[in-house]
């Protein structure tokens, strides 16, 4: 069995999760504060990948990143960057596709913390960032762990978006889910079964891990 689709999938999921931890946490914090209408709009846009068919999202990303027009053309002409049919393109698409899995649990957890925790920190002279880092984040650790694992697992299972934006280039964009589809098309059921089993095993372990962790750790910080 060619293991490169498995490694590529794990690499894609790992990088996507890291990027979403970096940009998703501040974004979730920002969204958790205040009730401005434009925040609701942004949250709705972030949540769209949960309900849109992945092929629709992939189609729009393909159009956006196409080097022939618009934003993709500007990227290509200004920075010689072509995102379609490339691994970086897969990363960008995965970040957008998996964003609700990071933002949703983290934002909900932050909103459930009593506002007096942040207020107490402010009266001690601490800035918003210090409060976020030292008080808020440590008290939503179980939700943070759940969000990171779900983001990773969800990226492992991507198909429609990666097929649209990345195609099926061995070693570059051919992730495990594409390899399964490709093997079935070639009537190579043995390979399809191998890739499927590996994906099944990894996601089963991850999801079970989340449930086990939540059973023992995910209690309210004030309980």
């Amino acid at each position: 069995m060619d293991l490169s689709p498995i490694w590529l999938t794990l690499k894609l999921a790992g990088i996507t999760t890291l990027i979403l931890l970096l940009i998703g946490l501040p974004l979730a914090w920002w969204l958790s504060r205040g009730r401005a209408f434009f925040k609701i709009l942004i949250e709705a846009i972030i949540t769209m990948p949960l309900v849109l068919p992945p092929s629709v999202l992939g189609f729009y990303l393909l159009l956006t990143f196409s080097p022939k027009h618009g934003f993709g053309k500007w990227l290509y002409e200004s920075f010689d960057v072509q995102l379609v049919f490339s691994f970086p393109g897969l990363i960008v698409a995965s970040v957008i596709y998996s964003m609700p899995f990071m933002i949703g649990p983290v934002k909900s957890a932050l909103q459930q913390l009593p506002s007096s925790l942040a207020e107490a920190s402010y009266t001690l002279g601490k800035s918003g960032w210090q409060t976020f880092w030292y008080v808020l984040l440590p008290n939503i650790r179980p939700s943070l762990f759940t969000a990171a694992v779900l983001t990773f697992a969800h990226t492992l299972g991507e198909f429609g978006v990666v097929l649209m934006i990345g195609g099926n280039i061995p070693g570059v964009t051919r992730v495990a889910s594409i390899a399964v589809y490709d093997s079935v098309e070639k009537m190579d059921y043995a390979s399809a079964n191998n890739y499927s089993l590996v994906l099944f095993a990894i996601t089963f372990v991850l999801v079970t891990g989340v449930f086990v962790f939540n059973r023992y750790h995910a209690k309210s910080p004030l309980a």
Binding site: P114, S116, L117, E119, A120, S121, T123, G125, V135, P138, N139, R141, P221, L222
Partner: peptide
């Protein structure tokens, strides 16, 4: 910037 000590009715202690 106000340097006010505040004792909250619900204590607002940091669980971590």
């Amino acid at each position: 910037k106000r340097n006010t000590g505040f004792v909250f009715q619900n204590y607002a202690l940091f669980p971590n």
